[in-house]
Design a protein around this nucleic acid. Structure first.
Lengths: 349, 349
DNA sequence: TGTTAGCACTCAGGAGTCACGAGTGCTAAC
DNA sequence: GTTAGCACTCGTGACTCCTGAGTGCTAACA
């Protein structure tokens, strides 16, 4: 639909606007572009682009800014070719991950902080999900007469722990024994199944070992009940305050809504997870394309990382709609690839 | 130095300013106060108070606002009497803590969010320190051939874990055996000592059991090395964005400095920890009294909570200097008391 | 001697006006 | 199809003026 020239102009406008955050005028383009076109010509093209919905005019005597549709076209068609990182940059990303291997749980945290530093936007990382991971070990460490710490280690190397209080009347010894039985019986079983199926299966076994069965069950439930919820992976946010660097968030009220949203990890995770299940590996949600109303002035670029072909987590960058897509997208692409490599290598057992 | 009447006026000015965030004029006071004094009289007193340094005038034709010294006097002398929570409120605070016992690690987090909700300021909680706590259990759970998760459980019920990579050439079995030996040898020893003393002590023992001693030592070091650092307790922040509610932070630049500071947990922890070692149980740092330059427009009210007489953590509220001290101080006092009770009861083993 | 009424003075903030300039749309000529 | 020229638009910043809240001071009062 668009002529070559129109696409070029649209691209130049987006590029300029991303950089300056101010409406781009025809003269600016005519001076920059190699094609020797006068401002008047550009103006005609701009008018056409506006009519087609790719550009907007904040007010009559201002330049043009890209519309949501404009960004979308830019991302879909004007970016793909040659939008890759240089070999040097790829190396740089990789080196950041190889430095401190062996602290898997912190990788997500580090990635968030690194990514936000690099982009000057806010970074979000959804830690590896443990849905189809299995139980590796279940342990109980007594602390005092009535308290103990229950430990759950998953096949992905994640550790979950919960302090449990032991009801009066039951010796800690008994509970310890119960956990030892469970450890043997349950290891290797997927986490999400443990609660439903495994519980029944071991009921008989347990009853044999224990007197006060009912009470003991309650203790166990304290540990197991949260496995479902908690197996969802944690959220890591980096560079929240970078949002305040952007001119579009100089208004405190506007900034507050976004920052508050970022504080509600549940909501953020939901937004990220919906991308995880999407078809593509890399998602770009521009402004109103976000389901969340709060993000109508923001863009969220996300990439999933995988283990053995299955998506296990999400890396994302949140910024204003006027985002430097040309930089963020390849970067995120590379990072998610590197994370996939890393996690695959690590979890391969 | 101050007459009764001057103190009353100072108190009224602070009370009003805290509420309205706008300079308080003489007429406002004369209308409110029960003492039948005209605005002119109040003006005279105000002029005196200003001369003494307790009040300030933003500009000639404006009302007065409390100076740092004014707040200090208010906190020190005008607040103490009857500045306690009502019995009902005390109950309310207590009930919030009794609801979900058994999740000690989350208490700090919950307190932060609860406190920020209640005050509309930002809340910071320094989780229980584990300095003089001892090792309860040290365990290794193998994940794959070359990786394993090391678990450290402390006498306070906290769990630390780290993924370790096992160097080629050493069978996981050997490492497992080493950990079992260590578990027995080290349990009961204070965390901060483990690295220095215990290592030497068990060297001989270990050498007997293992062939590739050097390499194994490296694995162990991965686990132990971070104990010192990590035993410092974690920081929990709640209601960061509440800062943006305050009129004094409507300027994005001002807000950004404070919010960014809050993102640097190390710095915040340092600020809190300096209060922990201070004499009093309850600290009020008003504006420039804070060492941190960033906080010169803020006040930080902190209270320590204890276990067995020794301070183990800090609860704090961060807000503008124009803070509702009359509300925050008793609240924080009560919360720290309740936390002390709670932790004491819990850690008593 | 402390308190009050009255009055002149100050000053931040909002409303109104104006000029500037960046940018557009349109028309006519190339 | 492209461009030069020109009239038109409109946000922005500078300037002025006005208002009202609040002060300080003085003189009178109890």
């Amino acid at each position: 639909m668009l002529t070559e020239r129109q696409m070029l102009i649209l691209r130049l406008i987006v590029d300029n606007y991303v950089l300056s955050a101010e409406p781009v005028g025809s003269r600016t383009i005519s001076k920059q572009a190699d094609l020797g076109l006068s401002a008047a010509t550009i103006r005609n093209e701009m008018a056409d682009l506006e009519e087609m919905g790719y550009l907007e005019q904040p007010h009559a005597s201002a330049g043009r800014i890209p519309s949501q549709l404009g960004y979308r076209f830019y991302v879909d068609h004007l970016l793909s070719q040659g939008a890759d990182l240089s070999a040097a940059e790829i190396e740089r990303v990789k080196s950041l991950f190889t430095e401190r291997i062996g602290e898997m749980e912190r990788v997500a945290q580090q990635t968030a902080s690194f990514l936000s530093n690099l982009t000057q936007y806010t970074a979000v990382v959804l830690g590896p999900q443990v849905y189809d991971t299995t139980l590796k070990s279940l342990q109980l460490v007594p602390i005092s007469d009535r308290t103990a710490v229950a430990l759950v280690v998953t096949s992905t190397g994640q550790v979950h722990n919960r302090t449990v209080t032991i009801p009066e009347g039951i010796p800690v010894r008994d509970i310890e024994r119960m956990f030892k039985v469970l450890d043997k019986k349950l290891s290797g079983i997927p986490l999400y199944r443990i609660r439903s199926r495994a519980l029944e299966e071991i009921t008989l076994e347990l009853a044999r070992h224990m007197n006060d069965f009912e009470e003991a069950m309650r203790v166990l439930d304290q540990v197991i009940s949260w496995m479902g919820e908690d197996s969802e992976g944690k959220l890591y946010v980096g560079g929240t305050t970078n949002m305040l660097l952007q001119p579009e968030f100089q208004d405190v009220q506007k900034a507050k809504t976004v920052l508050t949203w970022l504080e509600h990890h549940q909501d953020v995770m939901e937004a990220l997870r919906s991308d995880e299940t999407a078809r593509g590996r890399l998602q770009v949600r521009i402004g109103g394309e976000n389901d969340v109303l709060t993000l109508r002035d923001c863009s969220l670029v996300t990439a999933t990382y995988h283990v053995g072909g299955a998506p296990v987590g999400v890396v994302g960058v949140l910024g204003p709609t006027r985002m430097d897509y040309a930089r963020v997208i390849p970067l995120l692409d590379q990072i998610s690839k590197t994370m996939t490599e890393l996690f695959t290598k690590f979890y391969a057992s």
